[in-house]
Every structure is written in C-alpha cells, then in structure tokens.
Design a protein around this nucleic acid. Structure first.
Length: 465
RNA sequence: GGCGGAGUAGCCAAGUGGUAAGGCAAUGGUUUGCAAAACCGUCAUUCGAGGGUUCGAUUCCCUCCUCCGCCUCCA
C-alpha cells in the first residue's frame, strides 16, 4: 500500500524492509489522566494502518510505548499522593479499557520507560563515547546538535530561523542550563528535589532520562536500528521525532525509521480542543451523552488523516445512523446468500474501490463512501456473487476496525410490565379504532422512554433513542 | 515573524486539468387511521475572495482573507 512519508514528502510503498514483517513504532500516551478523542484520532488511524496492512496479507509487529516517566506523570503522581508506578498503572489500565472499546488491536509490545532505564543509560554512554553528547556540570547530559549535520531534516529546521547550535558557544545566553548551545536537548536530567523518589543512579549521578531518549532506547530494544515506520501526532514532529532521529542515527550510524506517519490534530466545533473552551472530550464524556465508542471511531476515521477533522456531536449522531445503515445493508446482502455457499473469490467485488481508497494513502473517508456505493451495486447480486461481495465488505470493515451494531432485537429487550400493560391497552384502543385514546397512550409511552411501532399483526416496543 | 497544513451544499467529508463520491439533516412518493420503520426518489452549473495560464480550473500559478499545527519535552 501507499502512504505519505513526512520526511521525504512523498507517497511510498510500504514494503517490510526485512521482507517478512512490517515493524512499526507509535508514540503512545502519557499516562497522567484520561486520553481524549484527539489522542484517539492518532491511535485509531495507526490501528487502521495496521489492520489494512494485515488485511492485505502483510504481517506486522506493532510497538507502542506507554510514557510513564516525565514531568507530568511525576508532578501529578505527587499531587495524588501516589507512587509513580502505581499512579501510571491506574491510568494505563483506563487507557487499555478505552482502547478495547474503540476496537484498537493491542500492540504486540507495549514497553514503558521506567522498565528500560539501563537501555537508556547505555545509549547515552554510547553517544558520549562517539562525541554526540556531553555531561554538564550539574550531572545532566545533553545531546550536541552541532555533531549531527542532518538535524532538522524532518521538520525543515534549517528554514526556520532557529539556532541549531551550528554557531559557536552561546553559553552566555543560557547560564541557567549548562548547555554548549541553547538548542542542545537533554538526554539525562540530574536529580532535582521536585522529582521526589523518582531518580535512578547513573554514571553521571542520580537523575532520570529525558523524554526523547525513552522512545529511542525502546525502539532499539524491540525493533533494532532500522525499522519500517514511526508514527505519532503532528505535534511530535518537532522536537520529539527530530531528536529521536538525532539520537538513534548517531547511535547506530545508519537509517532510523524508513517512513514517518503523522496524524493531524482534530478540531472540535471548528476550534482547537482545550479544557478552557470546554470542548475536550474523553470517551467517558461522550458515553455520558449516550454515544458509543464505535460511533466515536466512525467519526474519527471520517476525515483523511492529513486533514483537520471537525469533531461535533452532530457528526456522532450521523455516525449512529450511518452505522445502522451499514448493518442493514450487510443483513440484506446476507439474506440473498444460500446457506452453505462457498466463497472462492478473494476479490473485493463491488467494494474494490473502497479497498483501493484505503490502500492509497489510507483514505478512510473515501473507503467509507465506497462501502455505501458498493452496497448499492451489490443489491443486484445473488448467490455466490452476493456471498463474495459480503466477504469483500467484511474485509473492508475489518480493516477499518468497524464492528456493526446489533440490529434492534425485540426479544432481547426487557420490557417492564407497566410498560407492557400500557402498550397492550393502546393496541386494544387502536384495534377499536379509538384513535384519540390510542395516540394519547402512545405519547405516554414515549414520555416514559418507549417507542411503540405498529405492525400488521402486532406491535414492537423499543427504547426511544 | 519563520515553517507546515486547511478552507467543497444546513452539517460532516472524498475527489479531479474536462465539467462535483459518500454519510447526516431536509424534502417528495409508496405504505400507515396518523405516525414510526421500510422501500423508491429529490437535494452544490458549483468547490474562501480576486486575478492569471489554458480550448477548458474547484484542481496549476500569483495576491488577499480566515482557520489550525509546530517554533525545545502537547496525539
């Protein structure tokens, strides 16, 4: 499949560099609070990428870290009066629960920074040994940007009027930090009082690793020096991913990630999401408004990953209707298939355009459109052709990670006896053609949250949406 | 200010140098006592504004307006 690569700014074919398994790394959540739908746009799109590769027959190795050691996790664990690991374990558990609701496949490996301190120290030692890093007077270690000429390629730093450390000593302007250059970034942070119990011994004294280094060290541990793809939100391009490239390429001397996959931020009601605007939603917030995680997922894949997505509650309602329409379409298609029909075609049938959208730079909205169009075309198919079409549709849905809702099943709904009595009374009034009485009782039922629909022979009751 | 990205119907949103997918909403019809559901239809001469190139631009170029991201630890 083709995917746009941030570094080369071109679409590239995603072929595993080891010839068998597509190995990729995603920067995971910082576990100091509940993840919001902005975070999940990124994780959902990464999940769709993985599912699409797997649907296309490519084996994957998916590594996504948990950021459990940084300023925020330390600060908030202390505020909560908890040990860091207990604090982050709680939020990690909540994150996993949300992921499962959203239908995200669990990564094959999910490392945390705290458990990889030795690997991080080893990488720093290697960088110091190669002249790419230096300890400062206070026990911190910094990466020397001037030692890596390629610094800034990912984010086009050279064109951004920043001090790249390529000029001479600027210590006079940065006496607070003992850095050679203002733009050098920290690999190891010397212990400070506000770190509390969260420090580790190192050759440079007690302290803790810097955030950028955590990812580089874990990538090296699980994916080696070179791997197929690195991913995260666009905000990570600079400085996080730029710094990872510098650390890792200096450490291994070769290429780091072969492709870079960055997901654009979403907007909420046309504005950027923020707590102060009151438009920052978590899955729990939306569940409280009656929306399911699958409806959220549908909205999140409803725009191309390199374009802003305007998230609204209306679009969630629309997602509910759209999902129901898909479920009905699938059921109608299935109803035309003789039991025991064997599907021999591995083709996508009328859903081929949807698949092509997906494999061309992960055009998820194009694929969704293609499903509806394909469904219309599939309406004329019968027997084995219908069976093949349904198989194709299900493969697309699996790639998108969409689970269709169960269609309303009257028998599985528990109806309170009072409601049943009211409904029976109305049915009797209706049969007696007592329309006024009938309409009044129906309104009463609706008031109590039940929708009564009349059929030829009988009626159905369902909870009002 | 620098760099990167976006502006397509009431809303969400694809796409393309050759005349605008899809979803939601709305609306007409069939059906229904009336509804709901279901089914069949309708729904952008137009793609932020203004120029330019072209036989032809929403798609390429220029200018302007608006919005978003990054500019040292935010997905």
């Amino acid at each position: 499949m083709l995917l746009f690569d941030t570094l080369s700014r071109s679409e590239r074919n995603l072929t595993p560099i080891d010839g068998t398994t597509f190995r990729f790394y995603c920067c995971g959540p910082t576990v100091y609070g509940p993840a919001h739908i902005g975070n999940f746009r990124t994780f959902v799109l990464q999940d769709v990428l993985r599912r699409t590769l797997e649907t296309g027959g490519t084996r994957t190795l998916h590594v996504r870290n948990i950021t459990d050691l940084d300023d925020k996790t330390i600060r908030d664990s202390q505020a909560a009066g908890q040990a860091l690991t207990a604090f982050t374990a709680g939020w990690t558990e909540k994150f996993h629960a949300d992921c499962e609701k959203l239908g995200l496949l669990p990564p094959h490996i999910e490392p945390g920074a705290v458990e990889h301190i030795p690997q991080q120290i080893a990488m720093i030692q290697e960088l110091i040994g190669k002249g790419n890093a230096y300890p400062s007077g206070d026990g911190s270690v910094y990466f020397k940007i001037s030692s890596f000429p390629a610094y800034g390629r990912l984010s086009r730093l050279d064109e951004r009027e920043l001090d790249l450390g390529k000029t001479q000593n600027t210590r006079s302007s940065s006496d607070e930090y003992e850095k050679d250059s203002l733009s050098d970034f920290v690999l190891w942070k010397a212990r400070r009082p506000e770190d509390g119990e969260n420090f580790w011994p190192s050759p440079w004294g007690e302290g803790r690793p810097g955030w950028h280094l955590e990812c580089s060290a874990m990538i090296k541990e699980y994916l080696g020096d070179s791997f197929d793809l690195h991913s995260g939100g666009v905000d990570l391009i600079f400085p996080h991913h730029e710094n990872e490239i510098a650390q890792s390429e200096c450490s291994c001397g070769g290429q780091f990630a072969a492709n870079w996959f960055h997901i654009t931020h979403l907007l909420v009601d046309g504005r950027k999401m923020s707590k102060s605007l009151g438009n920052l939603y978590t899955l729990a917030d939306l569940a409280a408004k009656g929306f399911t995680a699958m409806e959220v997922r549908y909205v999140l894949i409803g725009a191309h990953y390199r374009k802003p997505l305007n998230f609204t509650l209306d679009s969630l309602s629309g997602a509910r209707e759209a999902l129901a329409k898909l479920a009905k379409g699938a059921r109608q298609l299935a109803s035309k298939i003789e039991p025991g029909t064997v599907v021999t075609s591995a083709d996508f049938g009328p859903f081929l355009p949807a698949w092509e959208s997906l494999t061309h730079d992960l055009n998820t909205p194009g694929a969704l459109g293609g499903i509806f169009t394909g469904l219309r075309e599939a309406a004329n198919l019968t027997g084995p052709d219908a069976a093949a079409a349904l198989t194709g549709m299900n493969r697309i849905l699996r790639a998108l990670g969409i689970t269709l809702p169960e269609l309303a099943d009257n028998e599985s709904t528990v109806i309170p006896s009072a409601i049943q009595a009211l409904a029976d009374a109305r049915w009797a009034a209706r049969l007696a053609k007592n329309w006024a009485e009938s309409d009044t009782l129906r309104a009463q039922l609706l008031e109590q949250g039940w929708l009564m629909k009349d059929g030829k022979e009988d009626f159905t009751l369902s909870p009002a949406g």
